[in-house]
Design a protein around this nucleic acid. Sequence first.
DNA 1: GTTGATAATGAAAATCATTTTCAATAAGTA
DNA 2: TACTTATTGAAAATGATTTTCATTATCAAC
Lengths: 141, 141
Amino acid sequence: MQTKEIWMAKLKEKGMRITAQREAIVDILLTSEKALDPLEVYDLTRRSHPSLGIVTVYRTMECLEHLGLLQKVHQACGCNKYLKLKAGHHHLLICTNCGRAVYFEGLNFEDQFEKVAENNNFQLQDHWLQLSGLCGRCQKI
Amino acid sequence: MQTKEIWMAKLKEKGMRITAQREAIVDILLTSEKALDPLEVYDLTRRSHPSLGIVTVYRTMECLEHLGLLQKVHQACGCNKYLKLKAGHHHLLICTNCGRAVYFEGLNFEDQFEKVAENNNFQLQDHWLQLSGLCGRCQKI
DNA sequence: GTTGATAATGAAAATCATTTTCAATAAGTA
DNA sequence: TACTTATTGAAAATGATTTTCATTATCAAC
């Protein structure tokens, strides 16, 4: 089953209907290599669906986030960008030039975070790690 | 020299004037153990300066951030909170209950981040690590 | 101290992103 | 095919932040 089919199946599972607008928005989000904000999704989706309203974009993206399919990504350029969530964990490496986002595997960072928390008398609940730099392509430019 | 004096000296250095409003805002920010948003700073500062305008809070906090004295802290409860920046680096441990923020020393995380970037063909520029959990005090409640 | 140039202030208006409202439309089940 | 009801898009409402502008206050020069 393709990712798109999985996403649409999840929507259906929650009693939500499959509409042309939702399919188009999902297409854009699944295709993008970088995190997008609602306005960007709106502009990109309107190329194929000119009558789309931005409210629909906001609503659809909110649903997808609640379903655990999209993840909010905080960046210097704004905290309203969303990226398709990869199963497992979510440490990101983001290109400061083109915005491309890549998930990376941690070298058991979790254990070290646990230790840091202990040292400070904290009971760890969550962590957040994000690296940024120039991706391979952008280094050559 | 006290921290407040250092801050005010930095303002003066940039040709900015020392006003009662700025002193009051700085007092609030230096005293707080947790990151505050402009509205919180406004409310707290108005206790001693009831005529303070919220625009002044926005402007002052923006200056302090540009001067490298305040740091923006991204949290589940919003991305518009600011914390006094500690010299050196800025990894935070934040209590999910009371919001208290503590800087912690990294166990040479930087080297590991560098390695991760290399593995993914990225040229590392920045990193962002933040842990959250229950602080000692809040665990007992 | 007084003066004067100008930075800072606060209120109101403007802006921008997001959410809510609501009547019209479309999805999908019966 | 008909019907229930979720979805849509436009407009209005909201909330946070920024800009504008006339008034006030700081502080350097005298």
